[in-house]
């Protein structure tokens, strides 16, 4: 563990807590893409299958359990409790356009052709594009609530911090995982446009609005 990975995990945790807080306080999931949340639940489910078979640390296990539980709880809130506030008209990104190609790629490009490894690879590739329905929804609605932009900033920062973690681990541990690094860079690049808007607008107290 290094400071970048710890900050990254905390940023990820913060993002999830911000989202839950937003939905709980406003009793609404307006502006949030349910499809992205479904993809995140799929990411965690396929990535943490070794939850019971390999023990790394208490921290690792509790974080995995929290990520899995919170992702399904978020889906429950969006599609059940606060269903009336779910904006399905603007959440129209076709998930199959992401899941199918990513599934195929995971079969073709992986470290080992084993079920657990292919599922882990699928999860890494899927996570890199899972935010697209959410970004697509923000671009369709043309704006996002300020708390939603904080959620996206924390979520985008987590994988950016992980990139620093991989640089650190490469030089200090000699650890390097090309698949995770490439997917992590793609994932972070997808946020660049949003990062720019967040820093130039939201941090100046303005609302996040995309040029129509």
């Amino acid at each position: 563990m290094n400071v970048f990975r710890l900050l990254g995990d905390m940023s990820h945790l913060l993002a999830i807590l911000i989202l839950l807080l937003k939905m709980w306080k406003t009793r609404s999931c307006a502006g949030i893409s349910g499809k992205t949340q479904i993809l995140f639940a799929l990411v965690f489910t396929t990535r943490y299958l070794d939850l019971f078979s390999s023990f790394i640390s208490i921290y690792n296990t509790t974080m995995k359990l929290f990520f899995i539980a919170s992702s399904y709880f978020t889906i429950f809130l969006m599609y059940s409790k606060f269903k009336a506030t779910y904006d399905s008209n603007h959440d129209s990104f076709r998930m199959e356009f992401l899941v199918v190609p990513v599934g195929g790629l995971a079969f073709l490009v992986n470290h080992e052709f084993l079920p657990l490894e292919i599922l882990w690879t699928f999860s890494i590739y899927l996570e890199s594009v899972a935010i697209l329905p959410q970004l697509f929804m923000v671009s369709k609605t043309g704006e996002a609530e300020t708390i939603t932009s904080h959620y996206l900033f924390a979520l985008g920062s987590y994988r950016l911090l992980y990139i620093f973690n991989w640089v650190y681990r490469y030089y200090f541990d000699g650890f390097f995982d090309l698949i995770a690094v490439v997917a992590g860079c793609v994932q972070t690049i997808l946020y660049c446009d949003f990062f720019y808007l967040y820093i130039t607008k939201v941090l100046k107290g303005k609302k996040l609005s995309l040029p129509a």
Partner: peptide, 10 residues
Amino acid sequence: KDSSAKKDEL
């Protein structure tokens, strides 16, 4: 590229 190392990242 010891990616096969135990998956210790979240």
